[in-house]
Amino acid sequence: MSNDAPLYARTLRNVGTEHANAIVVDAGLATSMQSDLFQVAFPERYVNLGIAEANAVGFASGLARRGFRPIVHSFSNFLARRAHDQIAISIALPKLPVLLVGGSCGVFDGRNGPSHFASDDLATFTSLPGFKVYEPADGEDLKNAMREAMTEDGPSYLRLRRHGMRTGRADEAKGGNGTHLVHAATEDARVTIVVIGNLLEEAFTAVRILADQDVHADLFHVVRIKPLAAEKILASARRTQRPIVIENHCAVGGGAQAVTVALASYGLNVSCFTLPDRFLPAGDPRWLLAQVGLDANSLADRIVALLHQGAA
């Protein structure tokens, strides 16, 4: 039965099995956050505190000081925006091992409009000292990110795509967190493409479209945005002199900025294909991706245009 359950629900229950001190704290969005399998399996380690994110964060703060590993659920904006001060002072400052899971991520949760559309959540977490920040693209990424977050010291934020995430590997990427080389150019790479988190499939398709046009690219996938593992990206970008970052987040404070900063000290200018600096209309993911030029076809077109621009 549970194999038909949503990916996150199964992963979360497995975390409960692996970590006897894991305790899930919901903030009135349990049915959205797929907590049911965990709740059934570990009722004594499950609390739903209702629609009160600040209190949920503080509650987790107390638990974490007493040896528990709380996992706090809400939609990304309601953690990142509403509970930011609590996360800063009650979680980040005392360096507590709390995993915050934000269940919305840019275009994939755009149906509910700007209140729910998380476009700046990564910025609020990457800017807090000591936070590890993850954006998995598939089930393997998710499992690895949660395993790391639940075993290492300090707080973590995981930006979750609740619906439509592939269970297994979305590509040929290897395990582990950090940054993966998911595609090496078969011929001399002209561009170094870095895709952050959940846009991996779009980027991967774009790379195939580009290859058909004889434009070859190295493609890197970043799962852990902070701390960023930039070494492989740097080596490729030094060869191509043309690094591009693709991200389902605004240009400020997310992975695009992290890569830009990491490469800037080596004199490399990064082109960022991110969400625009405006609130977006409500819509489904495919429509929104096209609106913001982050679907595979648009990405391929933009990259070709960029190369032509550089050649002119």
């Binding site: 004594e44 949920a56 503080g58 107390g62 007493r66 040896g67 528990f68 009650s90 400052l93």
Partner: peptide, 24 residues
């Protein structure tokens, strides 16, 4: 005390403490 200073946060932390005491 635990980290405070931004007002309003302490009672929630106390909830976590009290709940942890029960679980333990």
């Amino acid at each position: 005390s635990v980290c405070t200073g931004s007002l309003g946060q302490g009672l929630s932390i106390g909830l976590g403490f009290a709940y942890a005491s029960r679980l333990s």
